[in-house]
Design a protein around this nucleic acid. Sequence first.
RNA 1: GCGCGGUUAGCUCAGUUGGUAGAGCAUCUCAUUGACGUUGAGAGGGUCGUAGGUUCAAGUCCUACACCGCGCACCA
Length: 722
Amino acid sequence: MDPVRKEPLPSPLSSGANEKFLKPYNPKETEPRVYETWEKSGAFNPDNLQDADKGPFTVIMPPPNANGSLHAGHAVFVAIEDLITRFRRMQGYKALWLPGADHAGFETQVVYEKKLEKEGRSRFQMEPEALRQEIMDFTLHNKSFMEGQLRALGASCDWSRETFTLDPEIVKTVYGTFKKLHEDGLVYRGKRTVNWCPKHQTSLSELETDTVEEKTPFYYFKYGPFTIGTVRPETKFGDKYVVMHPNDKRYAEYKHGDTLEVEWINGPIVATVIKDEAVDPEFGTGVMTITPWHSQVDFEIAKRHNLDAEQIIDWRGKLLPIAGEFAGMKITEARAKIVEKLENKGLLVKTDTEYKNMVKRCYKCSSMIEPQIKDQWFIKMKPLAAPAIEKIEKDEVVFYPEHYKKILLHWLTNIEDWNVSRQIVWGIPIPAWYKGDEIRVSEEQPEGDGWVKETDTFDTWFSSGQWPFATLGYPDGEDFKKFYPTQVMETAGEIIFFWVARMIMLGLYRTGQLPFSTVYLHGLVVAKDGQKMSKSKGNVISPLELSDKYGTDALRMGLIIGNTPGTTTALYEEKIKAYKLFANKLWNIARFVFENAQDTDSNAPLTNADTVLRAELHEIAKDVTKDLENYRFYIAGEKLYHYVWHRLADTILEDSKKILGTHKIPSDAAPEVIASRKTLLVLLLEESLQLLHPFMPFITEEIWASLPTKNADLLMTAKWPI
RNA sequence: GCGCGGUUAGCUCAGUUGGUAGAGCAUCUCAUUGACGUUGAGAGGGUCGUAGGUUCAAGUCCUACACCGCGCACCA
């Protein structure tokens, strides 16, 4: 009834160091204090782990984007990677968990543009250097904020090695890789069809576009003697090539290269017949006109036959003067008017309103992607993918869950060249210079006058893809020699192509070695109803709020248990609340043990019965160790939860009351039985704390500090029981 | 179209190599102020998506289908 206990119960603990156990566990008070103790101990840095005799164990943290608060996905990776790190550290490895922060080029620029928009400003009215500086300030501010949040989540990473993706050493490594790629002929600059976002004014990689099925009217127009089909009448102004399959008998009378005058949108034009196998005779009428500037397929056809390409739509998505009376109109607005005009001219044959096609949209703003021809820097991917495919096929890098191997191999096998140019200021500048037709790849301005510097920056994943070796100081750094290749890459399944694939390829290319031997991919964190968390749906759960409310240990336990690799996992308050009760349980187990066994003689021999109980936990410890080594965290956590609550507390502690006696029931056990039981209780608590530490680091460390006998000052660096 | 994952208790999910279904939360009953800002003992609740097959034995392996989610690729 009364939530506040007025007077503490009389207890042997009411004086002395363990008075804290009279009150419920208070994560808010405990966590910052414990974290500070850890950090001051220096044990986050593997160089200080003197007793570690098992060699290095390296985990490189996926650097969070320094453009906002940590979200649920970050909390998952902290829970898992910190668990791995703490487990390996206790096992005696020189455990290194290397933290970082990502400038997150396009992502951050988008976030910042939204901020500018709210302030009534626009990046297009700003000097690039000023904009860059503003975003830098913004990012660095967020970076330190984010570091505080990682600490709050208990991350035992080595802050002395923290790296930012724009650190000079990283940029140097990135330039080194680009230069090598260039020298090896794997980089080219060329006019290609790019995915242009008219809102963000930059090109995007294939991975940065979403392809969605949409119902778009499919129009049939008279084009001279032909009927052509199109979903994009607004691109058709310059269409002067009419293309059909060479074997299509219906059009056998028209020869490749024939010209004919046709009446078109803004008057008559001269059309040229092109025969190309890219045309599917079964589709539509089997005849189409092409717009090479605004379609990849059309561009390929144009290239094969050496045809002209003309820009129809400008970089902002408006029609150019070639559109005549429609010039300056947005394409969405122009489309209906053009169809109307063609209809009035009697050129509209029919409209299929049920037609569905795949439309590419910007993954950030959902704007319609406008294919445009642009000079961009590309990396040839086939030669980089081949060695990666070989290593993956040989299982030299293994995946949890396994099926990602197949998914990744499929993607690598069908890989396309990678456009690494971005028309944004926030990123690592591409080190290139131009003078007329001359191109130089170099950080410094080449000798002589008239060189113009490239203004594009790299796709952020080009630098992130080099993260494992760049952060370790490739090629000469001590850390690189000691900690590379790393052991585990743990990250979100979502970014397997964006990041994991590129780390494997670039790591192999630059260092000749796989950057890691194990990839563990966690799934998306969703709301309880399975919906993706999003601001617009209002169902976003902040991990830091949950941590604040229920304690970080409860949050972490809730993120580990029931979370199998690769599958989406639901995060909701009740779940975390349940693990807060578990923390409470553990706290009270400690209180019971301290009240009753504080005066334990650690040399007291165990009775047979107690030896069996000790062996039982040891068996569980073996089992849990095996689970952790095999990345079955979810099941290891559950086993420990079950043991501690339902075995240790419900059975062993309850039985101990009869042996030790309570204020109600006097003990009738022999003194050696009592002594044995006291020793046992401390031993079981001690081992439980060790096993639980990687899952619930704060509360276990806090209880450990009060253990009457223990094998190390800090639980964090105590020996793993197996 | 091709591929991947999922479908198990009211909800969220486990279920390692095939051996008579599990956890947490929720519900119900009883007990308890105790180590417990509560907890304990217990109960109810599932024909493991559907239909076949392999096997002495299938939630688990095979085939097909359905539904949900995702990825990849498309042609105007």
